[in-house]
């Protein structure tokens, strides 16, 4: 009986949801519908695409939106990742003190040599991805994740190597600070927080987009060190 009642309730709620969402426009059809509703034909996606190249000289429009038009959101998002790493550290800190570390099996020679050879290449790819974030698909978040995967490989493949958690923490904090400072320089120079105060250069060149590539490098270092820090924290109980 209870099952039937809960099923019935679920159905009623689902029907209500469907009824409500039927009014929401989705996809191409939806875009037309919403333009009719909104009347004034403003479409910010298209505005960014058509103007972004002129205004920021940044070839990757997504990067342009993420780091310049809505850079303040990104500052918040990077901070959330920082909090997650910090919080994990704080929670694990209390637990680690008493626990005796587990013994881990030693990896074979082939595995550890392979990891050591792969590691610099992975770093290179990661760094390429975030340095080219304003020109090609990718950027700080993606590049940082690739870098962290390199550290994860080292943790798994060469068990004796320990990550230097002090250096990771320092990289994490300093790159975050660099982001805030870049934003503050904009405030000091041009009177606006997060202003793109550097010359924007020529589109498609490596040195273009003003502060956008600099911010993406900071984010790349930050995300890389944060994710590596999380790996280090979680693997701290294994010897």
């Amino acid at each position: 009986m209870r099952k039937q009642i809960s099923l019935l309730l679920l159905l009623i709620v689902a029907a209500g949801f469907a009824l409500c969402l039927a009014g929401a426009p989705f996809g191409a059809e939806g875009a037309r519908e919403s333009r009719r509703l909104v009347k004034d034909n403003v479409n910010y996606g298209r505005r960014y695409v058509s103007k972004g190249l002129d205004e920021n000289r940044c070839a990757n429009i997504v990067t342009s939106v993420v780091l310049n038009y809505r850079g303040f959101d990104t500052l918040g998002e990077v901070t959330i990742l920082f909090i997650a790493a910090l919080g994990l550290g704080a929670v694990l800190y209390g637990r680690r003190a008493g626990a005796s570390p587990d013994e881990a099996q030693r990896p074979s020679l082939i595995l550890s040599t392979g990891c050591r050879l792969l590691f610099p290449l992975i770093m290179l790819v990661g760094i390429y991805i975030f340095i080219h974030g304003h020109l090609s698909p990718g950027g700080g978040f993606q590049g940082g994740a690739v870098i962290a995967s390199g550290f994860l490989l080292i943790c798994l493949g060469c068990r004796k190597k320990k990550l230097n958690s002090v250096a990771l923490g320092a990289a994490e904090s300093l790159s975050g600070l660099a982001f805030v400072l870049l934003a503050l320089i904009g405030l000091a120079v041009g009177g606006s927080f997060l202003l793109n105060f550097l010359p924007t250069g020529k589109v498609y060149a490596l040195f273009s987009g003003g502060i956008i590539p600099l911010i993406y490098i900071a984010i790349g270092v930050k995300v890389g060190s944060e994710l590596s820090g999380i790996i280090d924290n979680l693997s701290g109980e294994v010897r």
Binding site: L75, T79, F82, L86, G169, A170, E172, S173, L174, G176, L177, V180, L181, A183, L184, L187, G191, F193, L194
Partner: peptide, 20 residues
């Protein structure tokens, strides 16, 4: 008014410095 973003920038940068 010009200093309004500092309300967010100050605690953020202090939070980044503190773990160091």
């Amino acid at each position: 008014m010009k200093l309004l973003p500092l309300m967010i920038a100050i605690p953020l940068s202090v939070a980044f410095i503190l773990p160091l």
